[in-house]
Nucleic acid binder design. Structure first.
Lengths: 124, 124
DNA sequence: GCCAAACTTGACAATAATTCTCAAATATAA
DNA sequence: TTATATTTGAGAATTATTGTCAAGTTTGGC
């Protein structure tokens, strides 16, 4: 993977935005400083960075994928009211991988947990 | 929700197919007995049945959604090799909901767990 | 520094999954 | 058995994402 200014910007945009943005959101931000960046370039870079394990793609939320600069094991919570995405520490799930491997015999390469519900701001 | 023959067929097709089919798969089966059923009707009914809690939509697998007639709490495992979707009992995750609610204060309405890895046939 | 090979880009066409629109058909309740 | 509400089929429309390709950029060896 060669260096590219655009890819650097994608990664930095993700790191600077605590939210878990969609491609569209990142695109809007990138266009502010680079009027000519292309959507294809963005998607290409998001895929490459995901492939390289530098970022994580979060699927299963609404229609479009979200991206996460935090690649440590953790889960996600999406508020059904305000649609914000929150991080959930992985230890809430106990020995989920070990338990599942023992019960099934399958080899687990990765797993994702997504919660839906009301965040503290919206539950009132 | 009024009665409709097509919706009945959607539900029955899902129940008779132990796999976790996509809309496309269900569509192919329905076309065998009803040459004139429309894709829009299928998607409408899948959404209505999901809304009504009679089936469950599984997102986050490949590009298209899968549907599940089993609405009891359970998780899914997708084999990265053969792409089949397996059911995983919910007890592998311990008190995941209680733990998460206690740790965050959020109200959890639902949660999904998706594993990726190799099934017993493919791990050899 | 200069060059060739490999990689990346922007523009935009193409695709895939799903949703929308609307007139015609069907179901329901009185 | 009729009026009202719901559902359908057909196909156009939409949305997110990927593919194509010529032009621009990066890199490692000289």
């Amino acid at each position: 993977m060669n260096y590219s200014k655009q890819r650097e910007t994608v990664l930095q945009t993700l790191r600077e935005n605590v939210v878990h943005p969609t491609a569209e959101y990142i695109y809007d931000i990138m266009r502010k400083t680079d009027k000519s960046v292309s959507l294809a370039t963005l998607y290409r870079n998001l895929n490459q960075l995901t492939e390289a394990g530098k970022i994580k793609k979060i699927e299963g939320l609404e229609n479009s994928a979200h991206y996460d600069h935090n690649i440590h094991e953790h889960y996600h919570f999406i508020c059904t009211e305000c649609k914000r995405v929150f991080d959930i520490p992985a230890d809430v799930a106990g020995d989920i991988v070990k338990n599942t491997e023992e019960k099934t015999g399958f080899v687990i390469q990765s797993h994702d947990v997504i919660f839906h519900g009301l965040c503290n701001d919206c539950k009132k």
